[in-house]
């Protein structure tokens, strides 16, 4: 067995890391996942749907556990569960005043808890699957095959193409739903489509990061970027870059450490967010990229 040690010669370190097939695949998969999660997470944060995103990320767990239980492919389970949950959440009427909103959050919470309970049931029915359970929940970048990378890439391209197709009206509908509605933009339909895309992305990402840590890649880069700039195009690009940096750094450090990659990815992501937020606070401009600012920036 080759002994792996960290030296301060970073070029040699990276070269050593890339000698391992699994690490190359992990970096490829991480790159795909970071771009996809960044783009969809940016819209999620803009639309303040973090709770829905978190729930969509988590429902993949019973999906995968159920699929393994009945002997189907876990990948199918991930996607089926996430899309089904997205449709359930989208079925609740939004924008009907405060009461409907609080009802919506109760529904999302119930969907999430029930999905997890179903996952617990599947795990208990399957039995003797505890090691798999930990990697299902917390992910494993190890042991990703080249064919899995191709599958990830295909799904990511499809989801990103879908997002690109609805991107402009979705942005309008997110920033100012009332005006968008008046201009004849199908706000409700766009919202449902977005939730389905978010579900697809969450299902895809959770195969790599584990169900519990998908949300980190969805929310942290986007939250950080929207702290730094209010210009939409710039902050979207920044989100993707931050996501990539977080994943690469996390993978690199985890390679030389005995601790899980999920811990490093969330820690780097959170550190970025805290830095951006404190910088923002220090500048005395504690204002989020609110819709109105963004619209002005688009017009300018």
């Amino acid at each position: 067995m080759i002994h792996i040690t960290f030296s301060w010669n970073l070029v040699a370190d990276v070269r050593q890391m890339l000698m391992f097939r699994f690490m190359v695949n992990a970096l490829r998969a991480g790159t795909i996942v970071a771009v996809l999660a960044g783009a969809l997470g940016w819209f999620m944060v803009l639309r303040r749907q973090a709770f829905a995103g978190h729930t969509l990320a988590i429902v993949s767990f019973p999906g995968a556990a159920g699929a393994i239980l009945i002997g189907a492919s876990a990948t199918v389970g991930y996607f089926a569960a996430a899309v089904a949950a997205a449709l359930v959440i989208a079925a609740v009427p939004r924008s009907l005043g405060g009461r409907a909103r609080s009802g919506e959050s109760a529904l999302i919470g119930t969907v999430q808890a029930f999905a997890l309970a179903a996952g617990a049931l599947f795990v208990s029915l399957y039995g003797g699957f505890l090691n798999g359970l930990t990697s299902l929940l917390f992910g494993s970048f190890l042991g990703i095959s080249s064919s899995q990378v191709v599958a990830l890439l295909v799904m990511a391209v499809l989801a990103l193409a879908g997002l690109a197709a609805i991107g402009r009206p979705l942005f309008f509908a997110s920033v100012d739903p009332d005006v968008a509605e008046a201009r004849g933009i199908p706000v409700r339909l766009l919202s449902s489509l977005f939730l389905v895309l978010l579900g697809l992305a969450a299902a895809e990402v959770s195969q790599i990061t584990g169900v519990l840590l998908v949300f980190a890649l969805l929310v942290m880069p986007a939250a950080t970027a929207q702290q730094i700039t209010v210009r939409p195009a710039l902050s979207l690009a920044l989100t993707v870059l931050l996501g990539l940096a977080t994943v690469w750094l996390g993978l690199g450090v985890a390679f030389y450490s005995i601790y899980p990659v999920g811990f490093f990815i969330t820690t780097f992501g959170f550190a970025g967010y805290v830095l951006a937020a404190s910088w923002q606070a220090a500048n005395g401009r504690w204002r989020r990229a609110s819709g109105r600012d963004a619209t002005v920036a688009v017009a300018a």
Partner: peptide, 20 residues
């Protein structure tokens, strides 16, 4: 909710560390 989300995912990452 963005603050909650960021704190939440970092704490989960910490949970993964403690589990290990």
């Amino acid at each position: 909710d963005t603050v909650i989300g960021s704190v939440l995912s970092w704490l989960l990452g910490l949970g993964a560390l403690f589990l290990t």
